[in-house]
């Protein structure tokens, strides 16, 4: 009898182990629908790996590609572009403040041995209003060189994804706070050179969301610099992390995580339980080819960047 119980226990645990890579689905059903690709009057804009920013208060979408900013309306049609003014330097990222002023993260690479970056304030046409450098950076951030920029409540947040460092400044670019995310995650010094962030975003509460592909993990770090949560497991089954990249949190509280290897966007609920995934590699409109970044828009819209000139795909992600 005891043998039989032990055998059943083994069987139950083995079954549990088998199912572990497929996290349980729970909560409201998540639906995703492909809507369209960003386009202009020539058709789909054949973007590959670009930066997308959404100004939700105005319903406008900004795409930064090779130093040029193109602006799309809420229906995904381009209506304006700028970036050819040398005063703007090489534009790499963009944020919009409450008044509609544009702020550019721009690089001056004219001296490769001493590259520089600027925070450039523009009006809605891309005309320069002010050009600033970050100031008062403490010694530990003296070599800081950001490649992502965000604006929230009067402050800018800059990220160096390779160094895993974050700098928060005021509107004038003066240092206010810094984070060493590698230190927060307690990554050993020997592993730091090969440990970097592939996807980053802010949620509505100001938490920092980011993915570290070599750790097969996504993290939520508070403004206080505490790891609020982390999730993800290495693997190639649905919901598992191969090479994870972009991350965002939508208005329903879902976490949206890009998985490059399987070319999908995975949806996790607010408890980090895997719900579903969509995309998959292919040439059909709803397919994706090595997606990279995601940006959340209004009415459940999700903007997904990818390669092979497949453009920026726009999906609707909703909870029933």
């Amino acid at each position: 009898m005891r043998d039989a119980i032990a055998k059943y226990l083994v069987l139950a645990l083995a079954t549990g182990l088998f199912l572990t890579p497929f996290p349980a689905q729970a909560g409201a059903e998540v639906n995703s629908t492909f809507l369209y690709s960003l386009a202009n009057f020539h058709g789909k804009v054949p973007y590959s790996d670009v930066r997308v920013r959404v100004d939700r208060s105005r319903g406008e979408v900004y795409v930064v590609d090779r130093g040029i900013v193109r602006v799309f309306n809420e229906n995904g049609m381009e209506f304006f572009w700028f970036g050819d003014n040398p005063e703007l330097e090489s534009i790499y990222d963009l944020a919009v403040d409450e008044k509609g002023d544009l702020f550019l993260l721009s690089f001056d690479l004219s001296h490769p041995e001493d590259p520089k970056y600027y925070l450039i304030q523009c009006n809605y046409r891309g005309d320069v209003k002010a050009k600033r450098k970050l100031t008062n950076l403490p010694a530990e951030f003296s070599r800081f060189f950001p490649n992502y920029m965000y604006y929230r409540d009067g402050r800018f947040l800059f990220l160096s994804s390779a160094k895993m460092q974050v700098v928060v400044t005021d509107r004038d670019g003066a240092f206010r706070k810094g984070y060493d995310l590698a230190e927060i995650l307690e990554i050993p010094g020997k592993d730091r050179p090969n440990t970097e962030i592939f996807g980053f975003n802010l949620d509505a509460e100001g938490n920092m969301l980011f993915t570290v592909p070599v750790l097969f993990r996504a993290y939520v770090v508070s403004q206080e610099g505490k790891t609020v949560a982390s999730f993800g497991k290495a693997g190639s089954a649905p919901g598992m992390f191969g090479v994870v990249s972009g991350i965002a949190k939508d208005d329903q509280g879902n976490y949206l995580v890009v998985e490059r290897l399987r070319s999908v966007v995975m949806v996790f609920d607010k408890e980090f339980r895997f719900q579903r995934e969509f995309g998959y590699r292919g040439d059909k409109p709803a397919n994706l080819i090595r997606p990279n970044e995601v940006a959340v828009g209004n009415a459940g819209k999700l903007y997904v960047t990818q390669v092979r000139n497949k453009g920026v795909s726009v999906f609707s992600v909703t909870n029933d």
Binding site: D49, R51, Y92, S160, F198, R260, T305
Partner: peptide, 24 residues
């Protein structure tokens, strides 16, 4: 898929190719 990463600003780890958007 791993050895190129869009958004780089300089030499980065094991990357051996720069994404077009990062080299206008």
């Amino acid at each position: 898929t791993c050895h190129e990463h869009a958004g780089d600003t300089g030499p980065a780890s094991y990357h051996i190719s720069t994404a077009p958007g990062d080299m206008p």
